[in-house]
Structures are given as structure tokens and as C-alpha cells.
Design a protein around this nucleic acid. Structure first.
Lengths: 192, 192
DNA sequence: GTCTATATTCGGATAGAC
DNA sequence: GTCTATCCGAATATAGAC
């Protein structure tokens, strides 16, 4: 029935970190919401809370990566593909508040100056996602250096838009971000 | 005697929230680092931690607002003024890690789904800062609706760049953001 | 693999003296 | 305005039975 207790703990932790942050998420709550056996936490994660968070980051990184990949494959054109990825994300944000990818930003702001392990793993997630945008751009003929820069910018803009969306409780900032992408592409594309 | 005991608590809290987040910041640490008398916390802030955080947000909002205003007044041209504001911020980020304005994003991600008072005050801070950019743009002849939209976008991009900067521990994302502003302005300005 | 019980530390908050 | 003492709950983590 349950695929795996361990996976369920990881997934629940990713969700809870998004809602309440890293410090604000208690092991007690992880156990309750995941339905995991109370005594199994330190069996699966001997290093405790940090280890769970690191695996939650890894899980989030891959979940978002494959989601980006899937969405981008729906359109040939990189600009249109990335735009519709962002617009889809906006819809998701409004439907249920759970949006994978946010917990990474939360972790960074909480731990960037106190826990270098977590900070580095979050940095890696950002790089992974930027790379997906970059690959799509290269498929469209952008040369490597431009594609890399644009990929990073896009990821950064999305993160900012997500923070703004959480602050205002609506996804307009994401839609606006999608809307200004053509302006950035139009000039950069001259350097293809 | 020290009229600034209260102010010192507020300022210290703003700094600590940036470093460790809202939940991660303890009253004990606030007292220690601010040098405030131990027994004075609940005298000055009868509503406890949340009240201190709310005042820290207000303080940060105004500190950043006047900093933006001051920086933008150094150049006539809105694009150049905003660009140099962002570049100055990048320098500050690298010199000492303390950068006012970040604690707001930290608070949003931690409390957006658990504490509506704090969320709203953070939203207000974003609006205040966006308004400063908007005013500068209007002085440059942008019509209100365009200026407002651009002001919001700029604030959003800066927030995203800050998250990326904290993740990577360098300010390149801020400089890149300054670099792509002309692309956004160049087209939007047609609608002056 | 899972459970219970517990150790230990720490959080925010209150009461009352001065 | 400030201090000390203290409460209460919650946090992470460990030990050892089953």
C-alpha cells in the first residue's frame, strides 16, 4: 500500500518547509502528517532533521527539474515554452497553494548564514533548474554562454516572482514575469 | 535613560531575522545582541515576539525606502538611477553581509501561510519600495500605469536576485539584473 | 523496523520585587 | 523601567524493549 515510509517523510517535509520554514517544521509534525511510524524517523534518518531536509531538497530539485523538462518539451520555441511553463505555474499557484520549488527559497533565506550544507544543496537546485532552461535555449540555437546567462536570469526572475506571489497571495507577478520575457529575448537573440 | 533601548531592540531583530529567520530568532538572542536590559522586553513590547517583528518590518521598510529615495536622487535619468542603485546594493552585499530588505523576504516565506499580520506588513513594505521606483519613473515622463507596472517588476526582480545572491554568496545576480534593465525599459518606454 | 519512554535543552511568556 | 525567578510547552535526540 504505502510505497515507502521514507519517501513519504521526505515529501511531507518538503511541503511543510514551504509552509512553515525549516526551523518552524517540527519532527513531530512530519511524523503526524506523513503517517510514518513514530519510531522510524531516526532509523531512516540517523543524522536527524538536517538529513531529512537535505533529502527534501534533493527530492524537490528533481521533482521540479522533471516538471520543467516536461513543460518545456511541449513547445518547440524556447520563448513560448518557457512562457507557458511560467503561466502554468501561476495557475498551479492559485489552485492549491502548494508549489514545488518554493521550499528552496525558504531554506536559503533561513539558513544561508547558519548552515552551509543546506545552503549548498539549495544552490545546486537553482543550478539544476537554470540548466534546464539553458538546454532548451541551446536547442533553439542560442550559443552556450548566452543560453547559460539567460537560463540563470529566468530562474532568478521566477524566484522573485514567487516571493512576491506569496506576499500578495495572487499570481500576478508570475504572469507579469512571463509577459516581459519577450523583451529580454528580443535583444539577446541577436547574439545567437 | 537610553531612549534608544527600544530602537536598538528593533534594529537588532531586523538583523537577526535576516540571518536566522523569524522562528530561528530567539528573544534571548535579541536581548544579548541588542544590549537591552533583560527585563525590558515585555515592557516595551507587551505583545511579545510578533510585535517586535512587526516593528522590525516597519523599521526596515522605512530604512530601505529612504535609502532607495536617496540613491535614485543622484541621477536624473530613471534607468541610470535605478541601475546604480542596484549596483550599489551589490557592492554593499559583498562588503558586509548585512543588507536591509532581505528580512522581509525571509519573513514572507516563513509566515505567508501561518501569520497573516506579518504577511500583510511585508506586502506593504514591497508596495512602498515599488512606489519609490514608480515615482522616479513618473518624473521621467512615464505615464502612471506603466510606471506602476515597471516599479513592481523592478522590486520583484531585485528580490529574486537577492535570493540568488544569498544562495551563491556572491552578488553577480544583482549585477546581471541591473544589466538587463535597459532591455525592459527600451520597449516599455515607447509607451511613455 | 517500529515502539515507548525519557533526557535535555530551549522556546516564549508571566509574576512580582525593586 | 528593569530584574530575577519560574512556568509550561515544545523541540531534537537517545535508549532500549519488542
Amino acid at each position: 500500500m504505502r510505497k515507502n515510509t521514507k519517501d513519504e517523510i521526505i515529501r511531507t517535509t518538503a511541503k511543510l518547509i514551504q509552509e512553515k520554514g525549516y526551523v518552524g517544521t517540527g519532527l513531530k509534525e512530519i511524523i503526524e502528517q506523513s503517517g510514518a511510524p513514530r519510531g522510524s524517523i531516526y532509523y531512516h534518518f540517523p543524522d536527524g532533521k538536517e538529513q531529512i531536509a537535505l533529502e527534501a531538497v534533493k527530492w524537490t530539485r528533481e521533482a521540479v527539474r522533471s516538471f520543467i523538462q516536461e513543460e518545456l518539451s511541449k513547445h518547440e520555441d524556447a520563448l513560448i515554452a518557457i512562457q507557458s511553463f511560467i503561466l502554468d505555474s501561476a495557475d498551479r499557484f492559485e489552485k492549491n497553494r502548494y508549489f514545488v520549488g518554493v521550499p528552496i527559497a525558504a531554506l536559503i533565506l533561513e539558513t544561508s548564514s547558519t548552515n552551509d550544507n543546506l545552503r549548498k544543496s539549495c544552490e545546486g537546485a537553482f543550478e539544476t533548474w537554470s540548466l534546464e532552461f539553458m538546454k532548451k535555449l541551446q536547442e533553439n540555437g542560442y550559443k552556450e554562454s548566452i543560453a547559460k546567462k539567460l537560463g540563470t536570469i529566468i530562474n532568478t526572475m521566477i524566484q522573485g516572482a514567487l516571493v512576491a506571489a506569496l506576499a500578495s497571495k495572487h499570481a500576478e507577478s508570475l504572469r507579469t514575469t512571463a509577459g516581459i520575457l519577450p523583451l529580454i529575448f528580443s535583444q539577446q537573440s541577436l547574439q545567437k
